[in-house]
Amino acid sequence: MVTRKVEIMVGVFMLLGMLALAVLALRVSSINTWTTPDGYSVTARFENVGGLKPRSAVSAGGVVVGRVTDITYDTETYQAKVTMTLYNDFTTFPTDTSAAILTAGLLGEQYIGLEPGAEEEYLMNGSEIEITQSALVLEQVIGQFIFSQANKSGEEE
């Protein structure tokens, strides 16, 4: 028959397991990545979204204020249309806020950086951010750099 000792050990074992899961959930990932806080949705159009993905961060001043929820391609304007959710804690972005696709570090994840404007009115659910800056595509940057170098050396000669 099962002794008390066995029962206690199994209890400890189960507790350890739950503790480990809790550590994984709270410490290793962060709990707020899955309980997405309520928010309002705004859109923005970009020439090029680069490596932006749904669930990428939207940040302002380095603080995460929202998440990208959807990325589609608009065949009328030939632009990428990004839908993002901004959290309800941050409802006072002016309507002339600009959005740029930035990269965390040289090779890191891409995210949307918001730069607040100066208008009196605020972005609301369904608003569109008008001023956008596309992702830097490394190949294009390098291509431009080489091109300008070539031009420069051409002028000097």
């Binding site: 074992f13 189960m14 350890l16 397991g17 503790l19 480990a20 899961l21 550590v23 994984l24 410490r27 290793v28």
Partner: peptide
């Protein structure tokens, strides 16, 4: 039941 618990413990200890 035991393997997922063991794996969670393994992960936590590994981290």
């Amino acid at each position: 039941i035991a393997v997922p618990i063991l794996a969670a413990i393994f992960n936590a200890v590994g981290v």
